[in-house]
Amino acid sequence: MTEQEYLAALSQILSDILGDDSIALTMDTVREDVGGWDSFSYINFIVAVEAEFGVKFRIADVESFPNVGAIVKAITAAPRR
């Protein structure tokens, strides 16, 4: 998958969670950029991403992803289950 495909998939997941169809994530997006993307929905997003791509993040990493790009990188780097 390309970076763009990952971003599209992540955007779709987040749109589902927030019920907002206008979300388009980029590598530089941070949580504050997306209206309503609070810490509560963040964790749901992470788990949904884990399910979608069959990966498992470390809890410490989950806390410290600086932006969406870091999540994409973590997905590509993670071992597939």
Binding site: S39, F40, I43, I59
Partner: peptide, 9 residues
């Protein structure tokens, strides 16, 4: 919240 939800999910 996050550790709890993560492990429950």
């Amino acid at each position: 919240y996050n550790p709890m939800t993560l492990s429950l999910t």
